[in-house]
Amino acid sequence: MDTPIRVHGLTKVYGGGFRAVDALDLNVPRRSFMGFLGPNGAGKTTTIKIVTNMLSATSGRAYINGVSVMEDPKTALADVGAVVETPEFYPYLTPMETLHYLGELRGLSSCETTNRGRDLLDLVKLTDWREKRVGKFSKGMKQRLAIAQALLSQPSVIILDEPTSGLDPRGMVEVRDILKQLHKLDVTVLMSSHLLNEVQEICTDVSLINRGRLLRSGSVADLLDEVKARKIDVRTLRPLTPDMFDRLRAVPGVKGFAVTGDLSFSLDFEGEEDAQARLLIELQNLGLMVVSFKESGLALESLYMSLIMESR
């Protein structure tokens, strides 16, 4: 199956006529880690809920490993691990009991669940808590447990809905570290997010949606190549003074700049790496004494914003 997740003409109209998903087509290639990007209310979670059989579609189809979620959800979801929103756990169960419950529903033997559960709880750093009831767990701990349960049956398809949403910075880093490990597995991942840096850091592919419609889909590298202008953050020991402005604008590739602090500014720059190297030399020649010079990693944001603006 080249496209384990396939969505065709998916539409969801809520009561009151709000069209959350509008004839959406989405194909997630095998072994890709696809970021499903869009602003709040774009239809990401609605799409994921339909694909995981929590919402019914008004029209359209969703297939997982070739099986229609609408017609045979049990078979379609057999090989899927999912974390949708931040699930709540049964407070009367311990993490290990939770994994046994869900493992039993999926046909895992008790022994298999115990062994895998031990490894997964270790992976998500909950080993010390495995016999404690989930009722008192923090949101971050619950989110890590949610990821563990999604991996329990070693599914080939993993669906994650904003897995770092609502976590503190440390929790976000921990969850991202776990997600990065998924690259080592033979799995296909669809992960919704509105955090562009997260998608750029973790995903191999990206699909951008807004108002329930697909705007663009492709590999992250290809989409970034489309973005010619890059933003470069510069920090110096000497300030950028007005008499330097014209000289700076005259440097090849510089399309504009903005002073962001007494000793910092950002540049809109267009050019390859050699041009970037020349830019650095020019900045030093201006006598700025450059301390740091780095691409701000927001290239995807430029594309995202331009596509969102176009779609309005």
């Binding site: 059989n53 949708v84 929103e85």
Partner: peptide
């Protein structure tokens, strides 16, 4: 209401 459905419903169970 308690959102445990988010845990249970995406599983392959009718």
């Amino acid at each position: 209401q308690s959102r445990t459905g988010y845990l249970l419903f995406p599983n392959p169970v009718k």
